[in-house]
Design a protein around this nucleic acid. Structure first.
Ligand code: FES
Ligand code: FES
Lengths: 142, 142
DNA sequence: AGAATAAAAGATATATTTGTCTTCTATTAA
DNA sequence: TTAATAGAAGACAAATATATCTTTTATTCT
């Protein structure tokens, strides 16, 4: 599994929240969890983290809920970094304490391009694009 | 982290064992763990699994130890499948229960090519090649 | 001001992964 | 055939990830 379960839920949640935001709506934990098929309380914790890390925003009280400031300026990589950190883009595939061309493991030269491609793809994929995919073309979040 | 820690240790261990095998030597748990910088007992368990799955072979008693039948016919993907299963090549990046073009998540079309490339690279990389890299060109296992 | 709503925070629980330790079994060599 | 060696197997322990529950805080509406 390339991403932690928390991170998987996080991405799905952000896309769902963003889809609501573009319709000028805020959305609560229960509806989000239902929409993406995740455990409610755990999803709450994840949304809390995302809000602390400024990926999402939230407001309390009636008509409160989660929303996203600007879906076009948040990228997939921001969600991944918020939840799992940057290591998946930098750490050695077979767990050496450092990964570098100077001290490579026997897989380094094969893996580095793939890892870089992953970073590029994650960096170029905005939440806004994912919302468009989700809305327009029959993509799924659960 | 793309691979489990067990799988990381497993790959490093197999390369080390194979490097010994090509020199007609068998090697014990303690030396393996030392060589790859892993906990001895845990490494023992992993080697046990690899032997059960026919990635490695072992013999007990004096002059016993681990070895590999044919380094050229074992591929990286065999080690990964033995330890982590096939899911990393097939499961949805954001955790949907199924991954398919018919029911894609908003990342499917970006991720599928990368995942396929990973499978191809892992399928084409034989243990023998990794041993050559390790021996000839200053590659590292810890 | 008071009641209702909804997220934040913190404590607790469960599951999985990682790691250790002890005993058992097979092999070798004297 | 006995002692030494080394992996196999199983029980146990610690750490981390996943998940739940309760209390608190902020906001809105009446
Ligand atoms: S050193 Fe292992 S991937 Fe770079
Ligand atoms: S459905 Fe998510 S990667 Fe294929």
């Amino acid at each position: 599994m390339i991403l932690s379960k928390s991170c998987e839920y996080a991405i799905r949640a952000v896309v769902y929240v963003a889809a609501k935001t573009v319709k000028e709506e805020r959305v609560g934990i229960i509806e989000i969890a239902e929409a993406i098929g995740s455990p409610v309380a755990f999803t709450g914790k994840i949304l809390q983290t995302l809000t602390r890390k400024k990926v999402l925003a939230s407001s309390k009280g009636p008509n409160g809920g989660f929303y996203i400031i600007d879906p076009a300026s948040v990228y997939l990589i921001d969600i991944v970094r918020a939840m799992d950190g940057n290591e998946i883009f930098t750490a050695c595939v077979i767990g050496l304490t450092t990964c570098s061309a100077e001290r490579p493991c026997p897989m380094h030269h094969q893996m580095k391009p793939i890892r870089d491609q992953l970073r590029i793809d994650f960096s170029n994929r905005s939440v806004y694009e994912m919302v468009q995919a989700f809305e327009e073309n029959n993509y799924f979040l659960k």
